[in-house]
Design a protein around this nucleic acid. Structure first.
Lengths: 208, 208
DNA sequence: ATATCATTGACCGTCCGTCGGTCAATGATC
DNA sequence: GATCATTGACCGACGGACGGTCAATGATAT
């Protein structure tokens, strides 16, 4: 067969991109390396030239996914208007800019509701490591502004992000519609209590 | 080979028991049906006579695991002294009676630190469904006693349990020792804020 | 005796990962 | 500038393991 040689970086990203799509739509465990290879028209060996195992490929995909989100958020932060906001508005900006699994929303939405535990867990864990500090900074500011009251900003951020995500992401578990709406309705008051914020200030969490 | 016929219920429980041990020590995905079958000295077909897939066997194991915990907690609740406690003491009793993955502590402790995402996620989800209502009731009582202040007891319980578990269970993700101790130190103030409880009342959470 | 059903183990298809080997580009040597 | 060695991207047949199937068989109850 004709052989196509590409820039290694490009090839690597191609593989990650294809794997990302498949892992998200078909579920990690039910995605085969052969599928990825067929989509890209490459041989088995090529994938294994770049990633020593399926597991390692997953790792790269997750990293890519979270990094994407991180960049999006950093872009938001560096926008002109951002600095003038108070901590609450900043938090709202960060939280509403599509949490985890953004940009790929269209793909997900439907098939998201399957159960892709491994991908989602890794993603959340990695997400916490990378993004919780960002939120923590804003929480800290809120405390200084006097609108929040939190003893441990970083852990508080991790706690909130983990809770919100785990309890509403059907990628972890097939939560029922009743469970989801029940939880989402309660989130504003939960987060307000957690941050010591004014009642109603996080009402927007119920309106996504 | 000589054939050993057992009471179906007993056989079923044998299989669940063996699978439970292996799933917890070796990790679900790396446990093979053949291993289970070898331990029990039964043929492959026998397992599939009781469980139509490995996945279904996992489901049964998780259910068993959580049910075990539920019974333990119900036993605690029905003890003579329990009813006389105030809500805070009751919560402490429930929370310190070994959360998820109790009884099997010895086995875990060490190998727990591997990464067994699927088992742990299912377990937490199932745990929330079954046990959050128990906690919610106590939280509700606390509100009536005036020592807590919570708008949505059930969702609040789910939130706390999910957060604590996800952020400290190395079965989800290999959290570092630094992360773990940092989070555990912060838990008292986080939970107190969430429940609107007196500062210091959940200090015991840092001392497990 | 015969119906029922728990049990067996050979067998199947699939999937991850390996490995020996190909080929083109790069750069050293004469 | 012609020749040749080296590198590493790429290939794809193959191995081995695993989840799952099924027809046959033995045990048990009636």
């Amino acid at each position: 067969m004709t052989r196509i040689v590409k820039n290694p970086d490009e090839r690597r990203r191609e593989i990650i991109q294809a794997a990302k799509t498949l892992f998200q739509t078909r579920e990690y465990e039910k995605t085969t390396m052969s599928e990825i290879m067929k989509i890209l028209n490459i041989a088995k060996g090529t994938i294994y030239h770049y990633f020593s195992s399926k597991e390692e490929l997953l790792e790269a995909v997750v990293q890519d996914l979270v990094q994407e989100d991180l960049h999006k958020k950093q872009e938001l932060i560096s926008r002109p208007g951002y600095k003038k906001m108070n901590a609450l508005e900043k938090l709202k900006t960060l939280l509403t800019s599509g949490n985890i699994a953004d940009g790929n929303e269209e793909i997900l939405e439907h098939l998201h509701t399957s159960g892709n535990t491994i991908l989602h867990t890794r993603q959340l864990a990695y997400y916490l490591n990378e993004l919780a500090p960002l939120y923590a900074r804003v929480v800290q500011e809120g405390c200084e502004e006097g609108i929040f009251k939190v003893a441990n900003p970083l852990e508080c951020s991790e706690f909130i992000l983990a809770g919100l995500q785990f309890l509403t992401d059907t990628g972890f578990y097939p939560w029922s519609g009743e469970q989801l709406s029940r939880r989402i309705s309660a989130f504003p008051s939960l987060v307000e209590a957690q941050l010591g914020a004014q009642p109603g200030s996080f009402q927007f969490l119920s309106e996504l």
